[in-house]
Design a protein around this nucleic acid. Structure first.
Lengths: 233, 233
DNA sequence: TGTCAATATAAAATCGATTTTCCATAAATC
DNA sequence: GATTTATGGAAAATCGATTTTATATTGACA
């Protein structure tokens, strides 16, 4: 085996697993599948199937699934395995209620403590998002818009300097996101979301915490109403 | 092998694992060890040691540790293993802040929705706790008091009918509990905790949500101040 | 014909062994 | 002498095989 070969293998190894873990990769992939609805609520997650589909063995698979269970995206029942968490109106209302409360708290803290870098980051993520706004409902921009939308909301609260609070927010945002992707896919809503985001950013940059929080709350609630309308039962 | 033997084995098996899993048992035991400070913050959780100490193999051990990581009691670093979550003043303040907020929310909901069974349960857990109040600082009642104290606070919010909120509260209470056990062990505090609990219960039973919430908040904050005083640095 | 117990099967949970990764130490090169 | 580059050992991560558990099915008995 010559040097070139050695180099190639070294590079490949480095790229394939730079300090990451199978369990983490698995959790990430399955989380994405659950959040965007590819795996629908209630779906049984058969270990053998997943094992083969993902090309890993049971230990990291179970570990990945356990993490998702802790995030509330997967349900575990002893001796009966894993399944995608169910959905319900009740559950959704709870998510929205808590998310409003915690995310406005984080936003207020962020507005109080955010520095120049926070402002710059907020402007940047908003700019990226706004560029995608009119293409949102055209493939292949749908996924991109979703990603950037999350990034924008994330930077709003990123300066809150509270890891625990941000962790809870992240979990609730993920849960909220899942409902949106499952129930609100087809119809472009009859509202100017771009304007809402703009106003939100402006209030944040003007350090008007009260206004920013009430805008955020309204933003979350409005989306929630659209989703509830699309829910059966 | 005769029938008696068969029966005994069947019974033993039933008792040893009635629909529970190793991972769950491990998580429960380690959680208890971390919460009461037997495992101190930062302690490296060597897999081989734990494996031998607990008499299990790696898969369920990792799974149990992953669950604790999701609860914030254990820290995971890829390729570097598990360790008991560190503590800090900042972290503690965040815990208290969030706990006040979420637990008063749950208490309010509980007071609005609680039925006769809730009232009865609240009276019962309070009674049990009050019986232990004067023995609290004498062995072997210390652990018992702790357990019943948690049960009392738990039943206060148990009628809130919000699984997600209760789950967050549980996590925060556990975190709070750990700080109390680590930093506030020796000195009986100079305050009438029994009276505080009594007032809390009365306000809840009288359906005076505002009063109950402010009492609860004060109760949490007061304990927090005692803990902070005992913290070094 | 309905109920209960025994059995078969599929899936989850666990184990022991193997592989991979990291880190400390030593050797080597500039 | 300082910075890189090997090497060895310890620990984490993963694997494939085994054991345990739940459930569906069958057959015996009332």
């Amino acid at each position: 085996m010559d040097d070139t070969m050695n180099y190639m293998i070294a590079e490949a190894t480095k790229l394939a697993s730079p300090s990451t873990t199978r369990a983490k990769v698995i959790a990430k992939k399955l989380r994405a599948d659950i959040l965007n609805g590819r795996l629908s609520p209630g779906t049984k997650l058969h270990l053998d199937e997943l094992k083969n589909a993902l090309g890993v063995s049971l230990s990291p698979l179970r570990e990945g699934l356990s993490r998702l269970a802790a995030e509330g995206l997967v349900k575990v029942e002893d001796q009966r395995g894993f399944s995608v968490a169910p959905v319900s109106r009740r559950d959704f209302h709870e998510i929205i209620d808590l998310r409003s409360m915690l995310e406005t708290k984080a936003l207020r803290a962020s507005i109080e403590q955010g520095d120049d870098v926070w402002e710059a980051d907020l402007l940047a993520t908003h700019h990226i998002l706004s560029k995608l706004d009119d293409k949102r409902w055209k493939q292949p921009y749908f996924e991109q818009w979703e990603e950037k939308h999350r990034a924008f909301h994330s930077s709003l609260i990123s300066a809150s300097n509270s890891p625990l609070l941000l962790n809870f927010c992240q979990i609730l945002v993920d849960m909220n996101h899942r409902y949106r992707r499952i129930f609100n896919l087809k119809n472009p809503p009859n509202r100017d979301i771009a304007r809402e985001h703009r106003a939100l950013m402006d209030a944040a940059l003007n350090r008007d915490a009260d206004k920013a929080c009430s805008l955020l709350k309204e933003h979350i609630d409005r989306t929630a109403r659209y989703i509830v309308k699309s829910m059966p039962e």
